[in-house]
Structure formats: C-alpha cells, structure tokens
Amino acid sequence: MREDRAVDDVKQLDTLMGRVAEGDEGAFGEVYGAVSGSVLGVALGVLRDRAQAEEVAQEVLVEVWRSAGRYRADLGSVRTWVLTIAHRRAVDRVRSAQAASDRERRAAMLEAALPEFDEVSEEVEDREERDRVRRCLGSLTEIQRQSVTMAYYRGLTCREVSETLSVPLGTVKTRLRDGLLRLRDCLGVSGG
C-alpha cells in the first residue's frame, strides 16, 4: 500500500510539473510544498550553514519554476530532478566560497610579501636625489666642496670650518655661498 502511495505521489508530481511548465502558479505551490523540505535538507547537508542553505533552497525553487519545461519524466522523478539541482547548487556555493577564500588568502600573502609601492618609489627617489647631489658636489672646486661638506654634512659652524681649515672666516663664508649657488644651479633648484 505504501508503494502504491509513492507511485501515486510520483505521478502526481509529474502531472504538477507539466502544469508548472505551463505557468500554473497553484501547481507550483503544490510542488513547492512537496519538495521544499527535502531541498533545504540537501542544501544544509552540503553547506552546514542554515542561512546559506536557505538561500540555496530559494534559488533552487526559483530555478524549478523557471525551468519546469526542461524536466523530463523519462530521466527520473521530479523529486530526483529537483534534489539534483539542489545538490549541484549547494556544491557550487561551497566551491565559490572556497575560491573566494583562496583568492583572498593569496592576495593577503602577496600584499604581505611586497613592500608598499610608496616605500619603493620613495627609496628610488631618495637614491636618485643623493646621486644628483653627489654629482653636483663633484662639480664644485675642492675648496668649495670642503666648506660645504664640513658645514652641511658634518654640522660644523662657519667659525669651526674656518678653524679646521685654517682659513679666515670671511673666506669660508664666501666659499660656502659660491658653493651653494653652484649646487643650486646644478640641481635645478630655483633661487628665491
């Protein structure tokens, strides 16, 4: 008797699916009532997350409504067709989530491995600036270079440069002024 009822249920769902394919909303309501619990169960079994499973179940049942015309009774029962769709959709959701997680992990690893672009560009600019200053210092006379180096790189006062080089203070100031003017011109810095 139970087998007879199961066969009747299968035939009834087949008939209902034919009506759903023709746009019968009432028939879809009956199909929905017959399979929605099983669809949610399959999705929950794959996803292990109720909210995700409910989303997938909703997507599957919308797909059943839209693609009812593609159902073929000769390939299996309505329940099998719908649950196959549910399983595939749930597996796709897992794969999609895993792929997104993998992409995020790879992006985070790449980001952690590379220095910030700004750090790299700043370092390059600093190195280029130092090279330009060295080149321009090389264009100064020996006396100018000594005065500028002592005053600006060693932090000596004009008086200390004068004492270290045994040169009058006025001469040191002139050398510094002339050296700085030549550096400014060489570096392309506007005077002002």
Rank of each mutant, 00 (worst) to 15 (best):
V20L: 05
V60Y: 01
S36T: 08
G45A: 03
W65V: 07
E59I: 04
V20D: 00
A34H: 07
E55M: 11
V39R: 04
Q58N: 10
E54T: 08
A21P: 07
G29E: 11
R48H: 12
E54L: 02
S38G: 15
G33Q: 11
R72Y: 10
V42C: 00
V64T: 01
A43H: 04
R66W: 10
E59M: 07
E54G: 07
V42Y: 00
A27S: 06
G69P: 10
R70I: 04
V31I: 03
L44I: 02
G18Q: 12
A53D: 02
R19Y: 09
L44E: 11
D24S: 09
V60A: 05
L44R: 13
E30W: 13
E59Y: 03
E25T: 14
A27F: 09
R48V: 01
A51V: 11
G29R: 15
S67I: 03
A21K: 03
G45S: 06
A21T: 05
R66Q: 14
E63H: 13
A34M: 10
A21H: 02
F28L: 08
R70T: 14
E30L: 15
A53I: 00
V46M: 03
V31H: 02
Q58K: 10
Q58E: 10
L40E: 10
A68E: 02
G37K: 12
V31D: 00
A43N: 05
L61W: 01
E54S: 07
V42I: 05
R66S: 13
S38L: 11
A73T: 13
G26C: 10
G23F: 09
W65H: 12
V39A: 01
G45H: 07
R50T: 08
A51M: 10
A43S: 11
L61H: 07
A53S: 03
V56E: 04
L40I: 02
D49N: 13
G41I: 04
A27E: 01
G18D: 06
L47A: 00
E54N: 06
D49A: 04
V56Q: 04
L61Y: 04
E63V: 08
E30K: 15
L75R: 15
E55Y: 08
L75M: 13
A43K: 06
R48I: 00
W65M: 09
Y71G: 07
V60N: 04
L44Y: 13
V46W: 08
E25S: 13
R19E: 10
A57C: 06
V64Y: 01
E55Q: 15
A21L: 05
D49E: 10
V60K: 03
R19G: 03
V35Y: 08
G18I: 15
E30P: 04
Q52C: 06
E30A: 12
E63D: 14
R50K: 12
G45M: 06
W65Y: 15
E54K: 04
E63F: 11
E22N: 10
R50D: 09
G26Q: 14
E22K: 14
G18K: 12
G37C: 06
Q58R: 12
Q52R: 15
G33Y: 07
E22G: 12
L47I: 00
A53Q: 01
Q52Y: 07
S67N: 14
G69F: 00
